[in-house]
């Protein structure tokens, strides 16, 4: 009800404003303005203009955060709101400071990438109570916020399913699989392993011969994969949790000249150098892409919705899962992956 009244007021005011403009204009105008004036357009633009959006990824130094920002900036320029970027550079404490400062400067929306479920929870609570809307991207928070992005569990399931298809029953392959996890305590890793093991539990023919954390480190992933290959020359699949790390696993397989026998599946934001190029050169056999272009589009949509509706702090926090695509060497097209130019 409150919102209705507010919208009505804004609508009336802007109508009045437009009317007053048009009532002055006709004197100078040669031709008459024809047709019906859409009363919702002006309020739409009005609700965007001069707004402040905070953006706190976990780091500005990798493809996902860069892609999201590039997408967001296009719309910001178009609609005339400002994006304030803060870069914690993988440091939670710096992220907390950045969030703290941003909340103090009272923007309308903060788009953030949680380092984990916990770290920003109390800040989100404080900010939400102060009337700021939070859009979490790719990693959820223990405190409810609007969510766009990966469903990691589904991601894990998709990767596992791909391996099951390649190495499972009736494929004639060994069914031996290595899992290369990220930092064990991170949500992305924890949810993915859940999805992977869920699928594998239904397929007893799949044998997990190695399940280790490479700490998001490509070198470590390479080392693990090499050793596993050595121990199990009949290895069939490697599941990786993030392209930045899996390149190490893929290199180990390539180095052993086994890319035809061992299926390496990775996942990531679908950046060309990290995804399509690696599929083409055989580093990966499949790549689960949660396309950053789509995610940026979703972020923009949610921003437009929230700015117009301005929901109350206790409003329902909806979730927009990203629809991932399993890319392989055979199904990639020129547009399957993105580059920074995709946002120009």
């Amino acid at each position: 009800m409150k919102n209705m009244k507010k919208w009505a007021a804004i609508g009336l005011l802007s109508m009045a404003a437009i009317l007053s403009l048009t009532s002055v204009k006709p004197v100078a105008a040669e031709t008459e303005v024809e047709g019906i004036n859409d009363p919702t357009i002006a309020p739409y633009f009005e609700s965007m203009k001069g707004k402040k959006i905070g953006y706190v990824p976990f780091s500005m130094s990798y493809d996902l955060s860069k892609g999201w920002l590039a997408g967001m900036e296009i719309q910001a320029k178009e609609l005339g709101y400002e994006i304030i970027t803060r870069d914690p550079n993988w440091n939670t404490d710096v992220g907390v400071q950045a969030m703290d400062q941003l909340i103090n400067s009272k923007p309308d929306i903060i788009v953030l990438q949680n380092p984990d479920l916990q770290s920003y929870a109390k800040l989100l609570k404080r900010g939400t109570e102060a009337g700021i809307k939070f859009i979490s991207v790719n990693i959820k928070s223990a405190y409810p916020s609007y969510y766009i992005g990966e469903e990691w569990q589904l991601n894990g399931m998709a990767e596992a399913q791909y391996i099951v298809d390649k190495c499972g029953k009736d494929t004639g392959r060994s069914g031996k699989v290595a899992i290369v996890q990220g930092i064990l305590t991170s949500a992305a890793s924890a949810y993915q392993i859940r999805g992977v093991t869920e699928v594998f539990s239904k397929h007893p023919e799949i044998q997990v011969v190695s399940n280790q954390s490479a700490n998001w480190d490509a070198g470590k992933a390479q080392e693990i994969t090499r050793t596993v290959l050595q121990q199990h020359p009949d290895l069939c699949g490697v599941i990786g949790f993030w392209d930045g790390m899996d390149i190490g696993a893929g290199s180990a397989v390539k180095e052993a000249n086994m890319q035809d026998k061992v299926f390496v599946v990775s996942s990531g934001g679908g950046y060309k150098e990290a995804a399509c190029d690696r599929l083409e050169d055989g580093t990966y056999s499949a790549y689960f892409s949660y396309d950053v272009r789509g995610q940026a589009q979703d972020i923009n949509t949610v921003i437009r919705i929230l700015l117009q509706t301005n929901p109350a702090p206790d409003a329902f926090k909806f979730t927009l899962p990203t629809r991932g695509v399993m890319l392989t060497k055979d199904n990639i097209k020129p547009g399957s992956c993105w580059t920074m130019d995709s946002f120009k």
């Binding site: 993988w90 480190d217 490509a218 070198g219 390479q222 930045g244 290199s251 580093t283």
Partner: peptide, 12 residues
């Protein structure tokens, strides 16, 4: 060896 250089190796 790993077809890339990750500068975050500094943090390890």
């Amino acid at each position: 060896a790993i077809n890339s250089m990750n500068t975050r190796i500094t943090d390890t």
